[in-house]
């Protein structure tokens, strides 16, 4: 090959490698914050939690059904607003879409008291070590993960669901097509 051409290719190759490294460095730097965060379309990480009644719930057992995975705390005002809608629709969609409400590590008393006060019958579990919360990268409360029957995340909703219709629309999206 012509030497001049060879040199050009050589330079191009070296510059390409360097550019690749630089782009990688900048990319990882920019995405450092959001790395590992779940997105719609991802597989929902499996977990196991024990609810207030002592029953264990493993996410993978729900395959074939939609899951409304809700992270909440007793002090959180919007959580209080959406709970009644959740309670109503949990009954309506029984067997199709299951609610799993994960409290972010408060005391048994607080969670039981809350459940009693709002008359909640769907499974509520306390994530005392905040392991599930960390796995799902939950920060503001409430955060809801809508999980499709195939176990992938359909949508991540941050903030309270004030209208019953909002909750219903979410349920409709993940209910198994029969």
């Amino acid at each position: 090959m012509d030497k001049k051409k060879k040199r050009l290719y050589m330079r191009a190759a070296i510059l390409a490698v360097l550019a690749g490294l630089v782009i990688y460095a900048l990319y990882t730097n920019v995405t450092k914050e959001s790395r590992g965060a779940l997105e719609a379309g991802d597989k929902a990480p499996d977990f196991v939690l024990t609810d207030l009644k002592g029953e264990t719930h493993q996410l993978s057992d729900y395959e074939g059904k939609g899951v409304f995975l809700n992270f909440w705390g007793t002090w959180c005002e919007p959580c209080k607003e959406e709970m009644p809608h959740m309670e109503k629709l949990a009954n309506e969609y029984e067997g199709q879409v299951e609610i799993l409400a994960v409290n972010v590590g408060e005391s048994d008393f607080q969670v039981n008291n809350f459940a009693k006060q709002y008359g909640l019958t769907f499974p509520i579990a306390i994530d005392s070590g905040k392991e599930v919360m960390d796995t799902y990268g939950v920060d503001p409360l409430p955060t809801t993960f809508m999980i499709k029957p195939d176990g992938t995340i359909d949508q991540i909703v941050i903030g309270g669901l004030i209208q019953e219709e909002q909750v219903r629309a979410l349920f409709e999206r993940v209910k198994p097509s029969s």
Partner: peptide, 10 residues
Amino acid sequence: ENNELPGAEP
């Protein structure tokens, strides 16, 4: 010793 799944009783 029981770290298979998040949330599992340690």
